[in-house]
């Protein structure tokens, strides 16, 4: 008896290719940082109510990351999570591998166009509030591979990015600094009119 196959592999290829081409065509302009004005405004005057402050304090210390280790940066991220640098000091020891349980997308490494739809899907699956950290030169701008036929020149073409951490790869200290910058952003989050 012949088993009916649920799909044909050439059809899968075609669908996958069409999805990538559509994303590529739609990703011409980088997403701007929605709160680029934030630091400047904060310096001028800050008004936070105590309730907001407590909620933000809670949010800040329980940022659960979903790691997306795409290339060598992933090892620096792993180092940052291990005992020497100890990410758990920031309430981040729980790396969630389900995007639905995470609120920080930690993209570490080179993003290719073939991977880009997966990144977008993971981002879309995360619940609000959510943040994105671009770790390493490749995620920030394509890095050494900018101008390659297969690499996305900056993940902000695919998802909005909150914190950019340059470096090739950034040291764990660099990542920690980026995450502390993110904390500052989380604290001020409620200022944004959504």
């Amino acid at each position: 008896m012949e088993i009916e196959r649920p799909y044909v592999s050439s059809e899968l290829d075609r669908v996958e290719g069409a999805e990538i081409d559509a994303l590529m065509a739609a990703s011409k302009e980088p997403y701007p940082d929605p709160v680029a004005w934030l630091h400047e405004e904060l310096q001028r005057n800050v008004l936070l109510t105590s309730t907001e402050h407590v909620i933000d304090w809670g949010k800040r210390y329980s940022v659960w990351p979903v790691p997306l280790g795409l290339a060598c940066c992933a090892f620096e991220m792993i180092c940052a999570a291990a005992s020497r640098y100890d990410l758990s000091r920031f309430g981040m020891e729980v790396m969630r591998f389900s995007p639905r349980q995470a609120d920080l997308l930690l993209v570490a490494g080179t993003l290719t166009w073939k991977m880009a739809p997966a990144l977008r899907r993971i981002y879309d699956q995360m619940a609000e509030p959510k943040w994105v950290v671009a770790m390493g030169a490749c995620t920030v701008s394509g890095g050494a591979f900018r101008g390659s036929y297969s690499v996305v020149p900056g993940i902000n073409l695919i998802v909005p990015v909150d914190v950019y951490i340059p470096g090739c790869p950034p040291r764990p200290e660099g990542l920690l600094h980026g995450l502390m910058e993110l904390h500052r952003k989380v604290l001020a989050d409620n200022l944004i009119k959504k």
């Binding site: 050439s10 290829d13 075609r14 996958e16 290719g17 069409a18 166009w113 073939k114 036929y149 297969s150």
Partner: peptide, 12 residues
């Protein structure tokens, strides 16, 4: 005989 790395529809 089909592409192995790049996606279906890639030009060139």
């Amino acid at each position: 005989m089909k592409r192995i790395f790049l996606w279906d529809g890639f030009q060139g």
